[in-house]
Design a binder for these strands. Sequence first.
DNA 1: TATTGTTATACTCTATAACTATA
DNA 2: TATAGTTATAGAGTATAACAATA
Lengths: 133, 133
Amino acid sequence: MAAQEISSLTMLLFEAVGAFRHRFAEVAAELGLTPLQARAILELEEPMPMRDLAGLLGCDASNVTGLADRLEDLSAIERVPGTDRRYKLLSLTPDGQRFRGELHQRVTEGSLLSERLTRAERRQLGVLLKKLV
Amino acid sequence: MAAQEISSLTMLLFEAVGAFRHRFAEVAAELGLTPLQARAILELEEPMPMRDLAGLLGCDASNVTGLADRLEDLSAIERVPGTDRRYKLLSLTPDGQRFRGELHQRVTEGSLLSERLTRAERRQLGVLLKKLV
DNA sequence: TATTGTTATACTCTATAACTATA
DNA sequence: TATAGTTATAGAGTATAACAATA
């Protein structure tokens, strides 16, 4: 039945992401980062307003203040003024870029995505997930 | 490049699950449950040892003690002895079954999984996620 | 010895509400 | 008025370590 199907699939999604969450937390910890800090660094390919980062992280904007503070303490980012003076853009420093490169590499190494899925399946998964965000 | 692909897909997975997390938290709150309590109730289709539930929830077994305590306070579950006296099985009560039915229904209503994906795509997503857990 | 569950604890993540500054 | 960011706070989730009971 359909109802069962949807909620079972929702549970399955939660279970699946759990495995990634653990591995990701390990990788982040190896670099002295919390998982959320690591996610932020990976999302900051380009400088972006704090509010946009909150959107990508799926958390309230108020939480990004402290997150950005700690990333500044780590010399990973800096706040740069936007054209509109209300905005502060978060921009990776050279140290932040190095964090980002390390994260990319370590997240990739031994990922379930490469161990359990073929390239075609990963592409398929990407298409499906993009429809959901 | 492959490295980029894997970590981008990982980030996408985190972003996608975020939308579900918010909706799920709302539904749980409507019933006076925390998201984790709601997940536990949905996982407990059959009675299972506390440790097994920890596995499904992706958290340390130590956290299930307090979780089970609160679900007992809500009359949603009871601890029943297993054959091996070390085990305690968590079993839904009639109240717990009602919670479970409500959760199934509300999680399904207006789910992104039905709004954004076709039936075939949901089946596809299910196959891919099962390979990852 | 090994495994299940419990307790205590500390840290991380998260939302809400009230605030300031800018538009 | 509306929006971006900040601050303070409380609640939820999480792992670690040490422990008792059972196998």
